[in-house]
Amino acid sequence: MRPAAFEYHRAASIEEALSLLAEFGEDGRPIAGGQSLVPMMNLRLARPEHLVDINSLELDKIERTGDTLSLGALVRHERYFNEPLIAEHFPAFLDAAHWIGHPTIRRHGSLGGSISHADPSAELPCVCVLHDATIVARSVNGERRIPASEFFISAYVTALEPGEMVVAVELPIPQRKQHGAFIEIAERMGDFAVIGIGAVLELDGDTVLDARIACAGAELTPVRAASAEQFLKGRQLTEEVAQEAGQLFAQSVDPVNDYRSSAEYRRHLIVQLTSRTLMRAMKSKA
């Protein structure tokens, strides 16, 4: 449980980080909080020859520009709890952050690290998809803006190319007030989710004007519930309607099966949690 040999480089600026990453290509990796990368290196599941430490870069800002909230790649998970802009505009994002690991992990783990690691059960990739976030990636060749829906390719695989690094995640600030929630089921508190569901609603009274639902843990990437979202539009949200939306969502996914949770159980959880998350989002209105 000791990592294979590697060289460590501490980047002093984004430019330096990018040029180091360009130089090392496949053999180099950024390290942020280290909460996923270090265990993988200790188990020798990851063997980067060069680590580029990005922790001293100024990538930890949360800024509003017009209708966009930009979250720096080094924003640590615990920051969301004290961020009025998140609480006001992205309640599902805030809700989701509570489910990530434990206090120590939330202190060190970063947004860029979480989405680049792209664990299929992780909360932040799921809420990025939920909120139609844009991932801002940079390399020595310039900047790319990748919609979240195209960023996550498979389990632990993203659209990032060697030499490229996430610098920020942009969330579109909604025009109208949104209600959101995130609920998950995990074997123990702080474990990666068996199933996690995020939901965002725009409501007029009890009537759904717009709905977005996303799921972590079902497939190899976060999935959106197109049919359920469509179904909810214009309907009054009741327990029954929420259940029905859950059913629609469950029918549209192809859940993974592993030694701990069967696909059938996951499918069932999608129904239950979708319904609960929708109701929780609606109740947060009060």
């Binding site: 265990p39 188990l43 074997e187 123990r188 508190m189 702080g190 474990d191 030694y259």
Partner: peptide, 21 residues
């Protein structure tokens, strides 16, 4: 697994009871 490969080889998979439980 069926070939007698252990699957729960770290604390991410071999789950111990933790304080919140």
């Amino acid at each position: 697994d069926e070939q007698c490969q252990p699957l729960t080889t770290s604390f991410a998979d071999y789950l111990m009871p933790l304080a919140p439980e």
